[in-house]
Design a protein around this nucleic acid. Sequence first.
DNA 1: TTTATATATCGTAATATTGCAATACATAGT
DNA 2: ACTATGTATTGCAATATTACGATATATAAA
Lengths: 109, 109
Amino acid sequence: MGLTKTEIFSTEQNQLATLLKALAHPARIAILQRILASNTCICGDLVEELGLAQATISQHLKELKNAGIIQGTIEGVSVCYCINPVTWKLIETQMGAFLGAYKQEADCC
Amino acid sequence: MGLTKTEIFSTEQNQLATLLKALAHPARIAILQRILASNTCICGDLVEELGLAQATISQHLKELKNAGIIQGTIEGVSVCYCINPVTWKLIETQMGAFLGAYKQEADCC
DNA sequence: TTTATATATCGTAATATTGCAATACATAGT
DNA sequence: ACTATGTATTGCAATATTACGATATATAAA
């Protein structure tokens, strides 16, 4: 146990859950907001700006990369990260469909 | 360690992360989709339809309830669950702002 | 009151996540 | 080659999550 039973759910359910899990940490939200705010690559900077150790931030960046949410390019000594537009669009689409499925009708509870 | 450093992030970052975390499991997405599909309360039913033990589903329902995403009303022997419209709206707003902050400009990476 | 049914809680095992120090790696400049 | 700088990886401790059997609780029906 302690292992999610992915096999009993649909591919879309698992995919959306995986994407949301990658977003579901304040440090990763902060990292993404920092990238979004600059509207371009972010090279370095992140370690000084967030109050976390360099190893911790590198780990969060790796998770975002693994989920396909960001992509990195080596730029000399440092690495530049930016949003992966394809995955971002996917999140918007899947999340939009999920959230939009709620039609607020008569209150029942 | 093993404990998220919530104190170094903003209230909004922590709130969004908490809400997304509650959604970030295929079983909980499936539960919510089941409620959304019926467009009304769901009383019972969930245990037979998902392939998880009753205790496990009850635990997932509790997490969704704790996050304020669903609300339950005792209806005789069973309990009826439905979407909490306030929280659902909050998720839509916060997530919309977060995702909408991405303006796809020139590719840099 | 007893029984049946539905849901919640407890306890526990397996696994995952978070955070960081230490260290490795990789590139730029000297 | 050596050094400095930025990032990744490793190893580990603390904590959280997932799943479920067993059991408790609560209401309805007999």
